[in-house]
Design a protein around this nucleic acid. Structure first.
Lengths: 133, 133
DNA sequence: CAGGATCCCATTCGATACTG
DNA sequence: CAGTATCGAATGGGATCCTG
């Protein structure tokens, strides 16, 4: 008899795999740009710097909390810069970094695929949902 | 005095925006491929059909529940096919559809960017985390 | 072998209120 | 204007048990 059952072995493999998964570059990036708001923010900054309030109104659906949180994440990842002008009241501008700019083509690729194939996806969904239970 | 305050107006705009957001093709697609497991599954199927159990061991980190759930989503979106062979025991194969295949270049684009820039991202993160509180 | 059903914890996100 | 803090609802995701 083996010292470990198949289930135990699988559990251990899962741990290893999850560690690998956490280190996977693609997943780390996906976790950022696949974020609900991050893509929209990057897009909003594509044409140049924007103030916090501008983004707030441009991306009307984001709560102030999520907007700030998203910007922090992007800033931490080196994709945007945060510039504070200590006037009264304070002025804060966000702008894509060079690294952030290189991300735009990737986002466009996703956007292009989406717009090109969303109808097929939608059709497939409708068909699936209309299937006999 | 206006019949609606600025806050009320913003709240209404947010509702409209969220409706728009839900319909946004890019977000819908991002919601699928940005999923924790979907990308890995599509990748695992890139070279051809795989059985449920094969995927289970290939993607060791996914619980059986999440694997099935992910496959259902992909199937619903028309990205993979699910083929049941009614032997005993049952055999189920999953394979990318033509539509699913067109998604591979997009995933590769993300993967390429990730691998090319993850070090910069990591460096930025370290610098951010090491900042004076 | 494939996968449905349940339970349950962790995280996410939104709404609200408050600070410099 | 920009940002932080807190609370509660909703969701995601894992473990386990059970069925055809």
């Amino acid at each position: 008899m083996p010292t470990r059952t198949a289930e135990q072995r699988r559990a251990e493999e899962a741990v290893v795999f999850n560690a690998f998964l956490a280190a996977c570059p693609t997943r780390q990036v996906m976790a950022t740009i696949g974020d609900k708001w991050a893509g929209l923010v990057v897009n909003a900054l594509a044409d140049g710097a924007r103030r916090h309030g501008e983004l707030r109104t441009t991306i009307a659906g984001a709560s102030q909390k999520m907007l700030t949180q998203t910007l922090r994440t992007l800033e931490r990842d080196g994709l945007v810069t945060r510039t504070v002008t200590p006037t009264v009241p304070v002025r804060v501008d966000y702008e894509l970094t060079d690294l952030g700019l290189t991300l735009l083509p990737v986002l466009r690729a996703v956007k292009n695929w989406s717009e090109a194939h969303i109808l097929e996806v939608q059709t497939a969904r409708d068909a699936y949902d209309a299937r006999p239970a």
